[in-house]
Design a protein around this nucleic acid. Structure first.
Lengths: 231, 231
DNA sequence: GCAAAATTGTTGCACCGGCAATCGACATTC
DNA sequence: GAATGTCGATTGCCGGTGCAACAATTTTGC
């Protein structure tokens, strides 16, 4: 299959960031990646299985699901076009802790990990960049998870919310920002009950710390918000 | 400095696992690693700084400390001879979330990340193995953290303890095992109060689920323990 | 444009678990 | 042997937060 139409997408991924057309040509020729189309609801990856491929989403969107100890499953992440999955997994011999499901009809391409990790002599420059990107990608996921842990170990909900708000503001570069999360989703990320989150956000609003509307947040008193975290 | 005496240690690390003497000779010659000795209490790495080196501990032991939002710092990990640090960090451009302190006098060697990620043509086989090991090492750290998150998001202490016990038993391969953790340390890992941990362990003991003494645990009723996790 | 579904806010209640204080067991040091 | 420090267990208190139920509002599907 001709992947040229998807080069802009591939270039946008953290794995293939900034690669030129001719570089992608060469690499994809060498990788001989498989491409597959999925219908909404189909699984791209099943929890409990190993994989030796890095998946890149070319069309549509997917959800990563984690099986809870009690048999059901909860959404962990959502990804849209350009999303990478299986990247951390393929380098290890661990069984996948997540399943990946097609949220809409979608199209994915899979790069064999062995080919990624074994640079062919003639690919040189771009392949080395690829390796660096792979490590970078995995490292970044590690640190994202690490920040999550840092949130989770904070005992009071007030602190978790405050830390999260400050982090988001920092990421957005301004004190007003919006996130694509419902209250329920945010509550899950912060590991608390939805009603408790509402309650606490309400309190913080009454105290003049923040303003919220749906997914929009505005930090009114950053200093005081920071001081909330120290308790 | 001649590193030959330390080859057995290097070979024991996840990064240089199983490398032959001649392979280590060639690689270390190419890496031109720096070696440094530290006195107890000195810092090998400071939170907030970037690093482009992977450190390997040749002698002594170290502690990784994380600065809490309120200014103090808590121990995260301890490592002894053969320990790897800075591995996840060096591949990313993130500032270190941890400081690393010498717990005893110690000796460390640092491999420049750039050299690791840019294989020289003539090193071939062993260097490719090295790359694979690097990715594997980082991936494994990711999954260890992921399991930690899985623990932390469980709401009740009873569930967190049960999951941890089952995981440890699984890792040990038997239902009786010992861990090098004090109650306070375990409480910190499970993110709960030490007294609460004692209380719950006591309850579980009275219910005939487990037996504990200091760092030793014995699972008496695995089935019932599993069923605890579903609530 | 209407009904159904999703999202958010609110509130009362119960209870888990954090906190602080105390005790006993044991090891270490002088 | 006394003094000191570390570690685990126990207990009473009470505040934070999970839970359930309901209302208000927005979004979605037809």
């Amino acid at each position: 299959m001709n992947l040229r139409p998807y080069y802009p997408i591939l270039r946008g991924t953290s794995l293939l960031r900034g690669m030129r057309d001719d570089e992608l040509d060469k690499m994809l020729d060498c990788f001989a990646p498989r491409v597959r189309r999925y219908q909404k609801g189909e699984f791209l990856m099943l929890a409990g299985y190993e994989t030796r491929e890095v998946g890149i989403l070319l069309e549509g969107s997917i959800t990563a699901l984690k099986n809870t100890p009690d048999g059901s499953s909860v959404a962990i992440t959502e990804m849209s076009t350009g999303g990478l999955f299986g990247d951390v997994l393929s380098g290890s011999s661990t069984k996948s802790p997540v399943s990946v499901m097609a949220q809409t009809d979608c199209l994915a391409v899979y790069l064999p990990y062995d080919k990624i990790i074994h640079p062919c002599a003639h690919l040189h420059e771009s392949h080395l960049q690829l390796l660096q990107n792979l490590v970078l990608t995995i490292s970044n996921k590690y640190f994202a998870l690490d920040r999550r842990v840092e949130l989770l170990i904070c005992k009071s909900l007030r602190v978790r919310i405050s830390l999260w708000l400050l982090e988001q503001a920092d990421e957005a570069g301004q004190d007003t920002f919006a996130v694509p999360l419902t209250r329920a989703g945010l509550a899950e990320y912060l590991n608390c009950d939805r009603s408790a989150l509402s309650r606490e956000l309400g309190r913080m609003q009454r105290e003049g710390l923040i303003e919220t509307f749906r997914g929009s947040f505005k930090i009114l008193d950053k200093e005081r918000l920071r001081s909330q975290c120290q308790e």
